[in-house]
Simulated scan of single mutants.
Amino acid sequence: MPSEASALPNVARVLIYSATRDFRHDSIPTAVDALVSHGPAANISFDHTEDQTWFTDDRLQQYDAILFLSNTGEGINFAAYWTYHKYLDLGGNFVGIHSASDCLRNTTFFQKELGAAFDYHPELQDAIVDIIGPSHPSTSMLPKEWHVRDEMYNFKSDPRSVGAVVILSANESSYDDPGTRKFDQGTPHPTAWFQEHGAGVDSNGTAGRSFYTSLGHLNETWQDDLFMAHVMGGVQWALQANTTRASNANGAVGNGTSTPSTTGTNGTASASGSSSSPSTTTGTSAARSQYITASTPMVFIGAALAISLWTLF
């Protein structure tokens, strides 16, 4: 495991996707701005969209990684679902941040690529995160016991069950969690992890890398240098998979020139011309109940229709 992530020899292209269908974090614009501003030093060019129609073969294949940022709910439609799966099979890399683990709950390949789905979290509070993988580029700069103010997520499975390596662990003695855990998420408590080969790829596909951190709830968090070093270290590590054109000229995806057509809020690039979706809701942690659980999954109507038509013929 490398101890640090160096800038890539070629500019890497990363698409930030932050569409939400349930709760919406008000830190998303701050997060997008922070990522974009940190890109040049790492030789990364970030684009940003919340428009699921951006998920086409031609567009996604321009990117070395797709970064899911604080998403909630079923944030892409059936067509985009298959396009994204194809992208991963071609060697595309995955990065997920915070509530990215609370989206696409019915999508098996996405949940495997992510590692584990969000279950619930106790109220926002101060906590200690233990660094259990100190040599990873996303953790090598962190203190052994990292004091944070964030949401300590619990998950519906152990990410280690799909081959993930846990590198950050919530120190359960440092915060209060009176909630009821219904799932085995493994020990120690997973908070951030990586997969050298993303588990969401088909057996005949080319697996890129996967990185996920559950931290990142507050605006203030995205203004913290240590947190940004953690996130950017994870992004850079994912981009060094040698499966995309940023690091491998023979890669099938990445390092492209396609750019979103308009500018969204806060000056960030947006394929849709807007950084919010009409079907999202905005709120703060205080507006939610103390124990946040994944809501009832939506049904892919398109999938059901397709199956019905297939059975008729």
Rank of each mutant, 00 (worst) to 15 (best):
G264Y: 11
G254R: 06
S210N: 05
T259L: 09
A246I: 08
T221S: 05
T191Q: 10
T265P: 07
H217C: 05
T206Q: 09
D225S: 15
G234M: 15
T262I: 00
N266S: 14
M228W: 11
H230C: 11
Q195G: 03
N266C: 06
A249F: 07
G205M: 05
N250A: 15
W237Y: 15
D202W: 11
A252K: 13
T191R: 08
R245C: 14
A199N: 01
Q240F: 01
T206F: 02
V231S: 10
K182G: 07
Q236P: 10
G251A: 03
K182M: 13
T244G: 13
P178Y: 04
S270I: 01
S258Y: 10
V201E: 04
A238E: 05
T263S: 02
F183R: 00
R181A: 14
V201L: 00
A241R: 01
G205N: 06
G186E: 13
S203R: 05
Q185K: 01
A269W: 13
S247K: 03
N219V: 05
T206I: 10
A269Q: 11
Q236T: 10
Q195L: 10
G208C: 14
M232F: 03
P190H: 12
V231I: 15
H197K: 11
T206Y: 03
A192D: 09
T268C: 11
S214N: 01
G198F: 00
D202A: 13
T268S: 14
M228D: 09
G186P: 02
T213W: 02
T263I: 12
Q195K: 06
